[in-house]
Computed example of a mutant assay.
Amino acid sequence: MEQQAIEVKGLRKVYAGSKKQESKEAIKGLDLSIPAGSIFGLLGPNGAGKSTLINILAGLVKKTEGQVVIWGFDQDVNPRQSRAAIGVMPQEINMDPFFTPRAALETQAGLYGVPKSERWTDEILELVGLSDKAEAHARGLSGGMKRRLLLAKALVHKPQILVLDEPTAGVDIELRAMLWRNVRKLNEQGMTIILTTHYLEEAEEMCDEIAIINHGKLIVRDTTAKLLGRMDRKTLVVEPRATPSAEIRLPEGVTQETRSGGRLAFSYSRAQTGPEDILLALRDAGIEIRDFATEQPGLEEVFVSLTSNQ
């Protein structure tokens, strides 16, 4: 059987209410498994329960009921081992402004009980591109460098699982590219990556599998390719050599629009027709084609379709 990095069964989290506020059930009987060695996307709208789930996995929030197994260690039976198996790069920047990156990593390693002989501080600093800032105070680092330091801190104990919570929020293109290169390198070395992000094009490009949760419930979990395949509509975009003068007799269900530069876009259902039928109709109308391309819905369209009715 495929080894699971994380297994969650019947997970519930209820935040107690007060005189001014009712209790809130943030996670409602969630069952979820994440394969070892994968890059796994955990997606959902704001308030879906993603942060609560991550904080439970990291041992920062106590669950109400259910079972959480991390790298084979039951969180209730072996809490120290389960926490040691996971590293979290948080969304919020939280660090001592007077620590240097080197001191921050050494302190973090000490908190995890990593012996000095087993620490890899210099390698981590090199990995995240902070070697030349190793002795600079954190308060003097740019926002992007602080993000790199958050990633570095999550790696000090060499976790089997790395959770990236909105890692590229507000960062520049260069840092984003560097982050994804490092993530792929860590994954190739065997580390399981869990990614939460609102940049759905990143999840589409990076993730092997994706789970979408909403209102504390699992909506869908599947491979990225199969999720994208759920959307039936595609578009054929054609650049004609000249403006069409004859009427195009399109197959049933195909819609047409004109785009900039005189390009023609034909939207169709893959279950009903194919691009070859549209191209045949264009040929019959005497339209010569300079170029053409197909477009299909991305993860954003799938995400909206699955969460909008929840």
Rank of each mutant, 00 (worst) to 15 (best):
E135M: 03
R119A: 12
E135S: 07
G140C: 13
G144S: 08
L127G: 02
E123H: 05
K116C: 04
S131H: 12
E126H: 07
S131W: 15
H137D: 11
A136P: 02
R139P: 04
R148F: 00
M145R: 01
E118M: 02
G140M: 13
L141C: 15
G113Q: 08
P115I: 10
G113H: 10
D132W: 02
G144Y: 05
E126T: 09
A134K: 15
T121C: 04
S142T: 10
L127F: 06
R119C: 02
R148P: 00
G143T: 00
L130A: 03
R147Y: 06
G140K: 15
W120A: 14
G129K: 04
A138F: 08
L130T: 01
D132N: 13
A134E: 12
K133A: 09
T121Q: 02
L141A: 04
G143W: 03
E118Y: 08
G129D: 10
W120L: 09
L141D: 14
S142C: 06
G140L: 13
A136C: 15
W120T: 11
L130S: 06
G113D: 07
R119N: 05
D122E: 11
W120G: 02
V114A: 06
G140F: 08
V128I: 13
L127A: 14
S117Q: 08
R139T: 03
R147T: 03
I124Q: 09
E118H: 14
S142F: 12
R139W: 13
L130W: 02
A134S: 14
R148H: 00
R119D: 09
D132A: 02
K146D: 02
E135L: 05
H137S: 10
W120R: 14
L141P: 09
G113K: 07
L141G: 08
L127S: 15
E126P: 07
A136S: 15
S142K: 00
M145D: 11
T121A: 01
G140Q: 10
L125K: 13
W120N: 13
S131A: 15
V114D: 09
E123R: 02
V128P: 15
R147P: 11
E118K: 12
A136T: 04
M145V: 10
G144P: 05
G129F: 12
R119K: 14
A138Y: 03
